[in-house]
Amino acid sequence: MAISYKKLWHILIDRDMKKKDLERLAGINEYTTKKLTRNENVSVEVLGKISVALGCPIDDFVEFLPDEN
């Protein structure tokens, strides 16, 4: 199953935030942000930090996509 964080970037745009702002607010590092940008897996802990920092549930910024067969 693939994962997409496209909705996360839309939230940042809507809130006039940069990725650096998210890193600072959520306490995550640049390496993690790069993984998110590439739609790679990150830990549930990271998703939780982002959820708390943005004040929204995880499903507001994470989307699970079916595998392409």
Rank of each mutant, 00 (worst) to 15 (best):
Met1Ala: 11
Ala2Leu: 13
Ser4Leu: 03
Lys6Phe: 00
Lys7Val: 00
Lys7Asn: 10
Leu8Gln: 10
Leu8Ala: 05
Leu8Ser: 04
Trp9Cys: 02
Ile11Met: 08
Leu12Asp: 02
Ile13Gly: 10
Ile13Arg: 15
Arg15Trp: 05
Arg15Tyr: 07
Asp16Phe: 03
Met17Ala: 05
Lys18Gly: 07
Lys18Asp: 13
Lys20Arg: 13
Lys20Asn: 12
Lys20Phe: 01
Leu22Lys: 12
Leu22Met: 05
Glu23Pro: 07
Glu23Ala: 08
Arg24Asp: 09
Arg24Lys: 12
Leu25Ala: 05
Leu25Trp: 00
Ala26Arg: 03
Ala26Phe: 00
Gly27Thr: 01
Ile28Asp: 13
Ile28Cys: 09
Asn29Asp: 15
Asn29Thr: 02
Asn29Phe: 00
Tyr31Glu: 09
Thr32Glu: 13
Thr32Tyr: 08
Thr32Val: 14
Lys34Phe: 04
Lys35Arg: 15
Lys35Ser: 13
Lys35Met: 13
Leu36Lys: 05
Leu36Arg: 04
Thr37Cys: 11
Arg38Val: 06
Arg38Lys: 15
Asn39Cys: 04
Asn39Glu: 01
Glu40His: 13
Asn41Gly: 10
Asn41Pro: 11
Val42Met: 10
Val42Thr: 10
Val44Thr: 14
Val44Arg: 14
Glu45Arg: 08
Val46Met: 06
Val46Pro: 14
Val52Pro: 03
Val52Thr: 12
Ala53Gln: 03
Ala53Gly: 07
Leu54Ile: 03
Leu54Arg: 05
Gly55Trp: 06
Cys56Ile: 06
Cys56Pro: 08
Pro57Asp: 13
Pro57Trp: 09
Ile58Met: 15
Ile58Thr: 14
Asp60Tyr: 04
Asp60Phe: 00
Asp60His: 13
Phe61Cys: 08
Val62Glu: 09
Val62Asn: 14
Val62Asp: 13
Glu63Thr: 11
Glu63Val: 00
Glu63Ser: 13
Glu63Arg: 08
Phe64Leu: 08
Leu65Trp: 01
Pro66Asp: 14
Asp67Ser: 02
Asp67Cys: 00
Asp67Asn: 05
Glu68Ile: 01
Asn69His: 09
Asn69Gln: 11
Asn69Lys: 12
